[in-house]
Simulated scan of single mutants.
Amino acid sequence: MTPEVVRYRQADLLIGLYRRFGPVVRLGPYTYLLGPEANRFLFAHPELFEVERAFQSLVPVDGPTSLIVSDGEDHQRRRRFVQPALAHRQIAGYVPVMRANAEAAVDSWRAGEVVDAYQEFRRAIRRSTIHALFGEELAKESDFFGAHLQVLINLIDRNPAVVTLLRTLRAPAWHNAMRARRAVDAKVYQAIEAARQGGEAGAVLASLVRGDGLSDLEVRDQVVTLIAAGYETTSGAMAWAVFNLLRHNGAWERAQKDDEYLAGVVNETLRLYPPAVVSARVAAQPFEFAGKKIGQGTFLMYSPYVTHRLAEVFPDPLRFDPGRWEAKPAPHEFLPFGGGPHRCVGAGLATTELTVMLKVLLEKEKPELLPQRLTPTGLAAMRPRNGLRIRVAG
Rank of each mutant, 00 (worst) to 15 (best):
182 R>L: 10
38 A>S: 11
259 D>L: 15
248 H>P: 08
256 Q>Y: 05
370 L>N: 06
27 L>R: 11
341 P>K: 07
318 L>F: 12
202 G>C: 07
60 P>Y: 03
228 A>P: 00
137 E>R: 14
262 L>V: 12
364 K>E: 15
264 G>I: 08
174 W>P: 05
316 D>W: 00
184 V>K: 00
81 F>I: 03
105 A>C: 13
264 G>K: 01
386 N>V: 10
97 V>S: 11
283 A>F: 10
197 Q>N: 14
222 Q>W: 01
45 H>K: 12
41 F>C: 09
100 A>R: 15
345 V>S: 08
121 F>W: 05
87 A>W: 11
153 I>Q: 08
263 A>W: 08
106 V>P: 01
339 G>P: 07
59 V>Y: 07
325 W>Y: 12
319 R>N: 10
337 F>Y: 10
12 D>Q: 14
127 R>P: 09
231 Y>N: 04
222 Q>E: 15
205 L>W: 00
186 A>Y: 02
275 P>I: 08
372 Q>M: 10
241 A>T: 08
46 P>I: 09
255 A>V: 03
253 E>C: 11
354 L>Q: 07
5 V>F: 13
178 M>Y: 01
136 E>M: 04
155 L>E: 02
274 P>W: 10
104 A>N: 07
170 R>G: 06
232 E>H: 13
221 D>V: 01
2 T>I: 15
235 S>K: 03
223 V>G: 02
370 L>K: 07
145 F>C: 01
188 V>L: 00
227 I>K: 00
292 K>D: 11
113 E>K: 06
217 L>N: 05
243 F>R: 05
327 A>H: 03
155 L>G: 04
368 E>V: 12
280 A>G: 08
215 S>V: 02
362 L>R: 09
140 K>V: 11
26 R>I: 09
385 R>F: 13
325 W>M: 10
361 L>S: 06
63 G>M: 06
264 G>Q: 03
110 R>W: 03
211 G>R: 04
40 R>A: 06
139 A>P: 03
95 V>E: 09
252 W>E: 02
208 L>I: 07
210 R>C: 06
29 P>Q: 13
188 V>C: 00
170 R>F: 01
47 E>Y: 04
360 V>N: 10
385 R>D: 09
100 A>I: 02
259 D>I: 14
190 Q>P: 04
288 E>W: 05
351 T>M: 13
379 L>F: 11
22 G>R: 04
14 L>Y: 06
227 I>Y: 01
161 A>F: 11
197 Q>E: 14
134 F>K: 01
248 H>I: 07
96 P>T: 08
376 P>R: 13
193 E>N: 11
152 L>S: 00
55 F>G: 09
344 C>A: 13
355 T>D: 09
28 G>H: 12
111 A>K: 14
90 Q>K: 14
56 Q>S: 14
